[in-house]
Nucleic acid binder design. Sequence first.
RNA 1: GGAGGGGUGGGUGAGUGGCUGAAACCACAGGUUUGCUAAACCUGCGUACCUUUUAUAGGGUACCGAGGGUUCGAAUCCCUCCUCCUCCGCCA
Length: 427
Amino acid sequence: MLDLQFIRENADTVRNAIINKATGSPTLVDKVLELDELWRKTTTELQEVQTAANAEAKKIGEWMKLGLKDQAQAAIAESGRLKVALKDLEDSQRIAAESLENTLLEIPNVPHPSVPLGKLPSDNVVAFEHGPFPAFTFAPLPHWELLERHDLVDFDRGSKVSGAGFPFYKGAGARFQRALINFFLDQAVENGYVEMGAPLVVNEDSARGTGQLPDKEDLMYEAVRDGLYLIPTAEVPVTNYHRDEILLESDLPIKYCAYTPCFRREAGSYGKDVRGLNRLHQFDKIELVHFVRPEDSYQALEELRAHAEGLLQKLGLPYRRLLMCTGDMGFTQSKKYDLEVWSAGQERWLEVSSISNFETFQARRMKIRYRSKTDAKPQIIHTLNGSGLALPRIVAALLENNQKSDGSIAIPEALRSYFGSDTLISA
RNA sequence: GGAGGGGUGGGUGAGUGGCUGAAACCACAGGUUUGCUAAACCUGCGUACCUUUUAUAGGGUACCGAGGGUUCGAAUCCCUCCUCCUCCGCCA
């Protein structure tokens, strides 16, 4: 959510943001300005009547005490009239406030000036590529064939038990996941993150806080009876951890890491994109979250990116970094990088991390502020997050890139102590 | 799931219908004093919003877990919900 005053003073900037992000109509800005004016007018009127009513009530109290019954009775009658007016004004004000709020929620974050303009994925800028790319003397297999050969993941029984996109990891496959989780968490802690174990379901306020609601409810599984949502990422519970809080400047930056399963409905996908581990309804991810002072957030974005890239480098995975264009970056972000690993068996890039600065967009919804020495009032903080990393596609890339002609799969140096072996073989 | 008791400002904690946006203490910030540290004393210190011929300023409104109600007037009374604690039940 953007600051109302910012929209008042920078209406064109916001209109451009809507156009560039291709998320709605720029007339939303005019709607906000109109509703804002209405709301302020109504608020002022309401407060004037409240002032009168308060004064009246106070007089009544004093007269009663002095025994001036007649005067008190007259004032009570006057109070009754004010009360009726008050009721109407309260209703108008509430309606105006709700419309304003709902319209504000439809306005996307403003992209940072360094974000390239564009509408399509092809407009994203490949900012960096990191090898080495694996060389093969044979045709490398896609990971789903390797998984089947070594009996590491059971998709069919997952489908039977839960549905497509809910695989069982089995034997060495399950252990491999666990090794990755521990490796990622340990790296994050080494980089100064505090490890969190987070709830896997959140309430509606939390889903709204990070921007899943409104509009993206179709992405989340919902426990309707209890009004809870299964988390699509640990970002949701971990960022909401500080919702409605005023933090101390001396506590910043705050950095958390959390491993959680993630649940995504992702309706409407099919074909090669969802083959094997490429896209699942449930997957494991380690998420990194920062709470920082506004002046530090772009430095924090680069730090976060470096932490995620460091993991890929330690795993020896070839990857590239994309700077997402305005049209492909999402509603809530002001700047976003994607990291994609090269998948030799499929000969394609797979997104394994998304690293974003939200500036105040999430924090304003969540009312996360901090008290600084220089400002009299609490300031809205900046939030950022990034995957470090999402597991399934990492598993896919590791299997495909490290497969040998004899069908075995080499485990990267960095993972060996976690996995307990240098080769991944049949369970 | 059953019974009972709580939720007040950064913290502890007073406050059972008007004198309470809220005592007191702690913490924090500024100042005075003392040779440093410490202590003592003084002052300040919630948030959001509206508004004022734009202000490190004034005026106003709302907020004492959330929402509704009673009343001229609610932190205070009533209802619903959330949450915490104690006991019982169930349970990994």
